[in-house]
Design a binder for these strands. Structure first.
Lengths: 197, 197
DNA sequence: AGGACTATCTATAAGAA
DNA sequence: TTTCTTATAGATAGTCC
């Protein structure tokens, strides 16, 4: 899709690889976003660069999950990469967080699934339990149990390299939703009698 | 990208939505795959259709994780959607599972991370712990600790609607790898002294 | 690292099988 | 609902900032 056709095989040239990784990662997230909006689907994408940095598109839940495994505290931030606008379409509420520089922002209402994310200071076992719950919530949110929120976040890979002065956490961003109330049940546009897809 | 430009907003026409979802999901997975191969990156994509069915592209780990949350046993199968070929590129070994009808296949060597996946019959808490470990392994595998395997799998959404006669689990498929031994460390083509990406 | 700029290549909307 | 076809919209390789 460029000046020249390329084979799909590892790019050996270091500089090209970086550029391509960046461009295609952005493209992948954009595609994921379009799929979500067009089809009222729920997509979560996690990409690890060869250097070990995690880039995430998806639920704030995935957001928190990654944080945990990077050994971060909730107040530790990660750099927001994408959403320049927030959109709410159809009956499945969907919102995009918008980066607002380093401004401090608090959520207006917050989602029902945000609560457990804020519980810090758990022991290892409890954290595991919590993650399980979070994962389940991801699944449940799709079942029509709650609103849906999508965001794209870039995570600095090694905690020790974390630079708090240049990053912003998704959870600290304002959620410019038109409505944060849970929709009264989803209308997917087709019945459940039919074979699901 | 078709005969006509479309707005990125919820498709109301039921039939169009289905077709678009299917096409774009496939396209998204393809893009994820290309990103992985081109850049030695590690991508995991989970898409929930509006009907609640989960489609996954990524590690067999993600595979197992999803299984767990769908309340399935390891021996429960899911339908393989994609990989028509297996590929091994560069120094980061990457392999694609190939669907072989309903034939029963066993892994030749299996990966180091497959072991915990086979441990069934755990209590809820242990399962959580296990999942935690699996998630961590996903992270670690990117750090150069082990080989990398990618597969695309479609999961029937509700366990109760699971139809064992028409599906095939990725873990039951033959891994046509040229080599299943762990690579002697990864060469990402650039040093770690430099800023990671 | 990200943008900007094209020439090209690729994904896909529509429609029909 | 997977496939094929074709016209187009969109993504991106190469290159310069």
């Amino acid at each position: 899709m460029g000046r020249k056709k390329i084979e799909i095989r590892k790019i050996e040239k270091k500089s090209s690889l970086k550029v391509t990784f960046s461009k295609r990662r952005t493209g992948l997230f954009k595609k994921a976003n379009e799929l979500c909006v067009l089809c009222s689907a729920e997509a979560t994408v996690i990409v690890f660069s060869p250097g070990g940095r995690a880039f995430v598109f998806g639920h704030p839940t995935a957001d928190a999950v990654i944080d945990r495994f990077l050994g971060r505290d909730t107040d530790t931030s990660s750099r927001v990469v994408v959403p320049a606008e927030q959109v709410v379409h159809g009956q499945v509420q969907r919102q995009y967080l918008e980066a607002v520089g380093r401004a401090e922002v608090r959520e207006e209402g917050g989602f029902w699934w945000d609560a457990p994310i804020e519980n810090m200071g758990l022991n290892e076992l409890e954290q595991s339990r919590e993650m399980t719950l979070m994962m389940m919530m991801v699944m449940e949110s799709e079942s029509g149990a709650g609103p849906s929120s999508t965001t794209m976040v870039e995570y600095a890979a090694p905690p020790q390299e974390y630079n708090s002065s240049a990053v912003l956490h998704a959870r600290d961003l304002a959620a410019h939703s038109h409505s944060q109330t849970a929709p009264q049940g989803f209308d997917f546009g087709f019945g459940f009698d039919e074979p699901r897809f």
